[in-house]
Design a binder for these strands. Sequence first.
DNA 1: AATGGTTGCAACCGCATCTAG
DNA 2: GCTAGATGCGGTTGCAACCAT
Length: 294
Amino acid sequence: MDHHYHQHVDFGLSREDSIDSNDRKGDENNNNLDLKRGSWTVEEDLTLMNHIALHGEGRWNSLARAAGLKRTGKSCRLRWLNYLRPDVRRGNITLEEQLLILQLHSRWGNRWSKIAQHLPGKTDNEIKNYWRTRVQKQAKQLKCDVNSKEFKDTLHYLWIPRLVERIQASSNSNNQVNIQKTNENIIINNNNNNIVPNVNFTQENYSSTTTTSSENSIGTQISDMSDNCYTNYPLNQGDYGEILISPTGGYVQQGDIFDDNNHHQNMSQLFLDDNVCDNLWNIDDMLFLQQQLN
DNA sequence: AATGGTTGCAACCGCATCTAG
DNA sequence: GCTAGATGCGGTTGCAACCAT
């Protein structure tokens, strides 16, 4: 278990005292005072896993009772779906997955479960946490709202192109990823089992399928993009929803940024520095850029 | 070493929707 | 059609681990 495995922490505060009204209804025949909350113990996990292995999942309230777990059905369901399921891949969100999350979120917003459907092994909770801890953090550092045009432009013109570039770099170094650029799509293929979805956006609708070829090559087809994603961004309208279409008016545009000497430098060059990229970009650069544009 | 602040994420909450009787 | 219970979802909370001083 990882370091976040809490050893039987006894919460004694308000959260312990409050039980969901539906749970209350669902457990009226139980003694609610016996219901346990807080972190799961190893013993509870084993009990739940063994019970599901023998009897299957579903009917969570009755499952919890039958398994002898002093937990609500909802708690059991959440523990199973987010942690214990064999096909859950926790941690290590890959570049491809990050790219997909950004793309899908720009289209669907906070529809975490819908986004998670396209990232096999990833839970909605994990994606939601990723968004809050990484993406929203960047917005906060830039002192702009995560839903603002400025920030979405920044994602569109800086973060996503850099992710694509890093995936390409990874492709060149280990030959695991192959990015095909066409006039309409970027198609990412790798030889891992990690990235599975094949998402094909169109203007009016979209379809998505999960595909795995006989060679175990997995395709992720993401959004329409022009051939030169740095200098010829933006892309076709509708790709990222209405907000990310046009660069006009945005403070991040044309692939340009200023360095400390007030010289332009191309954004793609800036992003060759992984340290910059890992933190999305240098906050000082962004603040300076904002000053220049104001 | 001690302490206080920050981060990442597991788990909970409340509400909406679905389903079975 | 109504109702109770079950399930699903997005938002929020709180804590262990980590980090800085």
